[in-house]
Design a protein around this nucleic acid. Sequence first.
DNA 1: GCATTACCCTGAAAGC
DNA 2: TGCTTTCAGGGTAATG
Length: 275
Amino acid sequence: MPELPEVETVARTLRPRLVGRTITEVETSGLPLRAPLDETCLARACEGARIEAIERLGKYLLVHLSSREVLLAHLGMSGRFVLASQQALRPAHLHVRLVLGDEDEELRYIDPRRFGMIVVYEAGEVGQAPELAVLGPDPLAEPFTPGYLLGALRGSRRDIKQFLLDQSQVAGLGNIYVCEALFRAQISPRRRTNTIGAKRAERLHQAIREVLEEALAHRGTTFRDYVDGAGEPGGNQFHLDVYGREGEACTACGTRVARLVQGARSTFFCPRCQR
DNA sequence: GCATTACCCTGAAAGC
DNA sequence: TGCTTTCAGGGTAATG
């Protein structure tokens, strides 16, 4: 389940392998992802185009092409980009092949659950793409300050867990890192946002950044599907305090980690440490 | 404005 | 052992 650290790791690992290379051919599975894959549109944007840059915004990857088009990709739950030999056996759930003409390689998009998406935008229009226009600030970027967070919290009355998952408030957090950040900030996932004061907001701000930066240092969290652009799994799953640890001892106080369901997603937390 | 629910999908795990 | 059912989850849309 790729969140900000996983998508950023994919971008960092793909960049040196792809930037400067030319796509010569495109093929799709014909099966729809979250949004239908438009092979004609994809081919027009990609074929003969050089990959100029790879960027991440929230959980989205942007592949900038010399055709002045941009591929906007989301990995959903189980999507991954893999570089492979053109002769390598084609795996199940292979949905897109971008053939790189120079070295017998291709970039593959594989996605068993098909919750991901790849759409094409003109370079000048991608900023206004509906997927990106709604995103809040990136938690690792400058606009995400304690002041911003406090202001946003005061403007809402939702459970803090739900608030942090809302990509229009903060872009890039998912279930794992929200649970981990709330644990680190010692805030209950059910606490209403408007009851969080300046001190706690600052603690939460710091916790979000720490949790994400540590996950990045470990190259992301792999539970099942996630691998980076070099095909390597992450290592952060060995450093989680609460996520997926229901019934195990809290790393801080020894109380059993509890689980509750919010918005049809599991929340893991320490009922003693988090208030 | 916000909560809830359904939907998309597959594979692992649980239940029988 | 083998089959069926349930569950997980990111994002979106419909509904209340």
